[in-house]
Design a protein around this nucleic acid. Structure first.
Lengths: 154, 154
DNA sequence: CCCAGTTAGTAAAGTCACTTGACTATATCA
DNA sequence: TGATATAGTCAAGTGACTTTACTAACTGGG
């Protein structure tokens, strides 16, 4: 390969947006989970934290959670099983449908969620200091717009 | 829980930036890999695509790749083994250091990279149509700034 | 009103993208 | 010339899922 096309290669080879996204996501979630753990929930893993914001206070079905999270219902089932064992959620029969069960927070789970949300808010505002409020805001907006695009089928 | 704190909960419970990042990353990479596969590299997985942009044309050590990708050298070793078997990279002894080996593209690998980069560029510019050029640009800038912040230790 | 077909969920095994731990071969520095 | 550090590999383990296969409950058309 000659020097010219080598330079051309290098120019185009900067990390793709996909790689940037992945790396940022990993680092951010890692840091968030690290803090929650340090503050007294040592068994909590990223997925657990990821499910919580999708839970409605009246309880939510596994299929609905799956749709909101973009994963399979079986995946949800596993995460919920963990959270149940930790005493954070419980599964109650759905009064209107005998097949379904409503996943909802226990009393302890509500406290846990509240705490987790606090950690997240603090972490993000700390990062915003370095990144800049405006840029952080725009990053979020861009993400939301991109997700809309990506969620269109095909 | 009373109605007031319930509303308060719901307001704060929007998905965190971390979740948005993760979801966008997954969807975007999935789509990119899908296309590369359709266009003739059926064994290629997201990690393989992720390593390639970090490979210099003169060859790169596994430890360097690990640092660039933010994973362990053992992780790199596995990805490289896959790529080697596909005939995309090869491992050459490092002339200056008997312990080290340089991972570099084969001739076929260069063509493969070129093709992959093309797919990525097309995909991103397609998405930019829906998202908006400016917003896409700002998204990237935000990501880069956020990564700088997240890579600061602690 | 009953049975075919959908829908909610669970269970088990497999996969991908890693990490941890243990080890060998080479290099460097005191 | 060791003691230690560095580059890499091998094997096993883990987290976050998916796929396949199933049961139990609901629903709608004849």
């Amino acid at each position: 390969m000659d020097a010219g096309s080598r330079r051309e290669f290098e120019r185009r080879k900067q990390a793709s947006t996909g790689q940037l996204l992945l790396r940022a996501a990993r680092l951010l979630n890692e840091r968030a989970v690290g803090r929650v753990r340090d503050e007294g929930q040592p068994d909590l893993r990223p997925v657990h934290l990821a499910l919580m914001p999708h839970l409605d206070m009246e309880g939510t079905r596994a299929t609905v959670l799956a749709a909101r999270m973009g994963i399979t219902k079986q995946g949800v089932s596993q995460i919920v099983a963990d959270l149940e064992q930790m005493g954070i959620v419980e599964r109650r029969p759905d009064p209107g449908d005998g097949r379904a069960r409503l996943v909802c927070f226990t009393r302890r789970g509500e406290a846990s969620l509240l705490h987790g949300l606090g950690v997240l808010e603090r972490l993000e505002s700390e990062l915003a200091v370095g990144v800049g409020e405006t840029r952080m805001q725009r990053l979020r907006q861009g993400l939301v717009a991109l997700l809309v695009e990506l969620e269109k089928p095909a």
